[in-house]
């Protein structure tokens, strides 16, 4: 399982615009890093690059296990990485139960993964509703279900708290704490500070 995520000399640009260059970052098991920066500074692009959805211009993203052995990139991303972006990846025509079940099954889960997810984010009353009937906050909670339902070591979160109300922000903070206690890794792009101890990486900003 992923113990260390190391990024070295990473340069990413979108089209003609250079977002950042020579970025170094190292996250170890049990550690959370908060990514800050102005709109357009490249927070989302960095997360997508780590998830393998975006090709960097230069530099390397590497995953290592507890003994320092490098992990195969495809396996590390395909089996041990969660990416929770702005878009929830939910199909509006299907019920919450179908979508949560699909996401957990597709990403791989433990026996009671879906029940844990339902319990953690209070999804029980939503399960039989079509996703189109859910509010933004409810959809986000449903999408977060896969973080719990399908345990993976590395969480890449893009503004995870934005649509949540105070109660569910606290619940999610609690889930993040548990994840860190269980030797997980978190890299989260946020505007509001995370309610847990975390290092900050500032990508700066545009003027």
């Amino acid at each position: 399982m992923i113990h260390t995520l190391s990024i070295s000399e990473l340069t990413v640009s979108r089209g003609e615009r250079l977002l950042f260059q020579g970025l170094d970052l190292r996250i170890q098991a049990g550690e959370a890093v908060v990514l800050t920066g102005a709109n357009g500074a490249g927070k989302t692009s960095l997360l997508r690059t780590i998830a393998g959805l975006l090709r960097p211009d230069a530099g390397e993203v590497a995953f290592h296990d507890g003994d320092g052995n490098p992990l195969d990139e495809r396996l590390a991303r395909g089996r041990e990485t969660h990416f929770l972006g702005h878009q929830d990846g939910l199909k509006i025509s299907r019920t919450a139960r179908e979508e949560l079940g699909f996401q957990c099954d597709w990403l791989g889960h433990v026996q009671c993964g879906m029940d844990d997810a339902v319990q953690a984010f209070g999804l029980a009353p939503l399960l039989d509703l079509e996703v189109r009937r859910l509010s933004a906050g409810q959809r986000r909670r449903l999408a977060m279900g896969r973080l719990v339902g399908s345990p993976r070591a590395l969480w890449l979160l893009d503004e995870p708290m934005a649509p949540l109300d105070a109660r569910w922000r606290a619940v999610f903070a609690d889930q993040m704490r548990r994840h860190l206690d269980a030797d997980g890794l978190i890299l989260a792009a946020v505007h509001d500070p995370l309610p847990l101890p975390a290092r900050t990486l500032d990508l700066g900003g545009l003027t």
Binding site: A51, L53, G78, R79, F83, G85, H86, Q87, G89
Partner: peptide, 15 residues
């Protein structure tokens, strides 16, 4: 692609 599910599909066990 529009609703982000393609990112999810790219991070599954299957290539």
């Amino acid at each position: 692609l529009e609703d982000g599910a393609l990112d999810l599909l790219a991070l599954g066990h299957l290539p």
